[in-house]
Computed example of a mutant assay.
Amino acid sequence: MAATQTSYEGEFVYFEKERERLVAEITSTFEDLLSSSNLLNRKLEEVLGVGREFETISSLWGKFHDFMREQDTVDVALEENSIRSST
């Protein structure tokens, strides 16, 4: 029975060591995951920040485009009126 007790204690010690090793590995992996997740969040915030910076420029170009389209419509209408009045 002493041999069985020693064997059981040896297995228990092995189990405890293995469990501690696995817990440490899992903890390390979660820390790496958290670090990578934080890095990804920072990069996404940077991308959104750059997008917000271009929002103003995009709005300005959109207004310019609308203005030019209105001018084009006015020019076409003026040309049509001048053609009608000259005939």
Rank of each mutant, 00 (worst) to 15 (best):
E53K: 02
N41T: 14
E16Q: 06
S37Q: 07
S58C: 05
I83G: 00
F64V: 15
V13A: 14
V23Q: 06
D66N: 00
E45T: 03
M1Y: 08
I26A: 15
L44V: 09
A2T: 02
I83M: 04
Q5T: 13
E16S: 07
E46R: 09
M1C: 00
V50N: 12
Y14D: 13
K63Q: 09
D32G: 02
E31N: 13
V47G: 05
I57A: 06
S36M: 09
L44G: 06
T73L: 12
F67Y: 10
T4K: 04
R84L: 15
E9A: 09
Y8R: 06
I57C: 02
R69A: 05
N41A: 15
V50T: 15
L40W: 04
T29C: 15
T87Q: 11
Q71I: 11
E16K: 08
V47Y: 00
L34S: 11
Q5E: 04
S82C: 06
T6G: 13
T73S: 14
D72C: 04
I83K: 01
G49N: 08
K43D: 14
E70P: 00
I26T: 14
S35K: 01
L22T: 05
Y14V: 08
V76D: 00
L48S: 13
F12L: 10
A24R: 08
N41W: 13
F54Q: 05
E55Q: 01
F64L: 15
M1L: 11
K63H: 10
H65N: 01
A24C: 09
S59R: 02
R69P: 01
E9Q: 12
N81M: 11
V23M: 04
F30K: 05
T29V: 13
G10D: 12
E9C: 08
S86T: 02
S7A: 10
F12Q: 13
S28H: 00
T87P: 07
S58T: 11
G62F: 08
N81L: 12
R52E: 00
T87F: 13
E16D: 12
I57L: 09
E20I: 00
E11H: 13
L60P: 00
A77F: 11
E53Q: 06
L22W: 04
D66G: 06
T6N: 11
N81G: 11
F54P: 00
E46W: 08
L34D: 12
E16H: 11
Y14I: 02
E18T: 04
R19P: 06
T73Q: 13
Q71K: 11
T4N: 10
V13H: 14
K43F: 00
E80N: 09
T56D: 04
E55G: 01
S86P: 01
E46F: 10
L48N: 15
S7E: 11
T87N: 07
L48P: 14
E20Q: 08
V76T: 02
S85Q: 05
E25A: 05
S37M: 10
G10V: 15
L33W: 12
E70K: 02
